[in-house]
Amino acid sequence: MLTLFFVDDLPRKVGSSYEFDSDDAQHAIRVLRMSAGETFMLSDGLGAWSKVKIYAVKKKSLEVEVIETGMQDPLEISFTVVQALPKGDRLKECIELLTEGGVDTIIPWSAQRSIGKAEKGIEKLQVTAREASKQSRRLFIPEVTDVANTSKVVELIAEHDLVLVFHESATSKVSEIITKKYSESAKVMIIIGPEGGITNEEHELFTSAGAKVALMGRPILRSAHAGLAAMSAVNALLKVW
């Protein structure tokens, strides 16, 4: 698959020339050693894409020609993951994994037992999502929202067709919950608790609002890794994969 870069001013006219002069262009020149005649992909991060061919390599930019354009439609199902704040750099790792797993919206959550903080700021986490999107060749960059409290998460539950809270005390497997009843869900939310688990109060608030509590399996995963595992299972059960 062709290398992908994101640009704000995506060229869309076949045959037109475009100067690719961002930091990514310098990476393409100095690290990837791209040369005249090679092709790669540009995208606006919203589904639109252009296949371009290099015809000139400059010191800090690439002159390219647009040879093909298109638009990728979003999936019929949108995925939101509410991720309790993990400690240290694990939040960045979590953003990377969730992006690779196909999440559309990532909501950092300040749970009662969260010991981490979004110390680097949401803007930097959005950059992480953008970089992970390039690596995974996805044309839609997920949104990383501001940190939400539990009350906000409860409000959002009502806006989704299926909401799953993964918890080790659950008695129902995720495969037992996602039945034909939810096969046409358009908006899915997954809630991942902190390393110490969600509290009884949070559990009650979420289930009272309509969330289903699901068991992921016997092994207990790190909070930062659980979201990708959950996304994998849900994608398979909803036949997205």
Score class of each variant (00 low, 15 high):
residue 55 Y to C: 07
residue 136 S to V: 11
residue 146 D to T: 12
residue 144 V to W: 03
residue 49 W to A: 07
residue 54 I to N: 05
residue 159 E to T: 13
residue 56 A to Q: 15
residue 115 I to G: 13
residue 73 D to T: 12
residue 34 M to V: 13
residue 101 G to F: 06
residue 84 A to Y: 06
residue 81 V to C: 07
residue 197 G to Q: 03
residue 75 L to G: 14
residue 94 C to Y: 01
residue 93 E to R: 13
residue 20 F to G: 04
residue 196 G to Y: 00
residue 124 K to I: 10
residue 10 L to R: 12
residue 167 H to F: 10
residue 206 F to K: 02
residue 192 I to H: 06
residue 60 K to R: 14
residue 198 I to F: 12
residue 130 R to N: 10
residue 39 T to V: 03
residue 102 G to D: 07
residue 16 S to C: 07
residue 151 S to F: 13
residue 9 D to H: 11
residue 111 A to Q: 00
residue 133 S to T: 04
residue 141 I to Y: 09
residue 98 L to R: 01
residue 54 I to F: 07
residue 148 A to G: 00
residue 240 V to W: 04
residue 73 D to Q: 09
residue 16 S to I: 06
residue 179 T to V: 14
residue 33 R to Q: 07
residue 157 I to C: 00
residue 168 E to T: 15
residue 121 G to I: 09
residue 224 A to H: 13
residue 116 G to L: 00
residue 27 H to P: 05
residue 154 V to H: 00
residue 27 H to Y: 13
residue 142 P to F: 08
residue 51 K to T: 08
residue 166 F to R: 05
residue 229 A to M: 02
residue 122 I to R: 06
residue 96 E to Q: 15
residue 15 G to Y: 10
residue 45 G to T: 04
residue 123 E to S: 14
residue 168 E to F: 10
residue 149 N to V: 11
residue 84 A to P: 05
residue 225 H to Y: 07
residue 82 V to G: 12
residue 121 G to S: 11
residue 234 V to D: 02
residue 26 Q to K: 15
residue 120 K to W: 04
residue 160 H to P: 02
residue 81 V to T: 01
residue 12 R to Q: 13
residue 163 V to Y: 04
residue 174 V to A: 02
residue 23 D to A: 15
residue 120 K to P: 00
residue 175 S to Q: 13
residue 42 L to K: 09
residue 177 I to S: 08
residue 83 Q to M: 14
residue 69 T to W: 12
residue 36 A to F: 03
residue 62 L to D: 05
residue 172 S to N: 14
residue 23 D to K: 14
residue 104 D to L: 07
residue 42 L to F: 03
residue 144 V to R: 00
residue 180 K to A: 15
residue 109 W to T: 08
residue 161 D to W: 07
residue 14 V to G: 01
residue 101 G to S: 15
residue 224 A to S: 14
residue 52 V to S: 12
residue 45 G to N: 08
residue 220 I to N: 09
residue 92 K to F: 02
residue 43 S to V: 00
residue 226 A to K: 03
residue 67 I to L: 01
residue 203 H to C: 06
residue 151 S to I: 11
residue 239 K to R: 15
residue 6 F to S: 09
residue 50 S to F: 10
residue 109 W to F: 15
residue 76 E to R: 08
residue 15 G to K: 08
residue 121 G to H: 02
residue 107 I to L: 15
residue 176 E to H: 06
residue 127 V to D: 08
residue 204 E to Y: 03
residue 10 L to G: 07
residue 123 E to K: 12
residue 157 I to W: 04
residue 80 T to F: 03
residue 161 D to P: 07
residue 231 M to N: 01
residue 5 F to R: 10
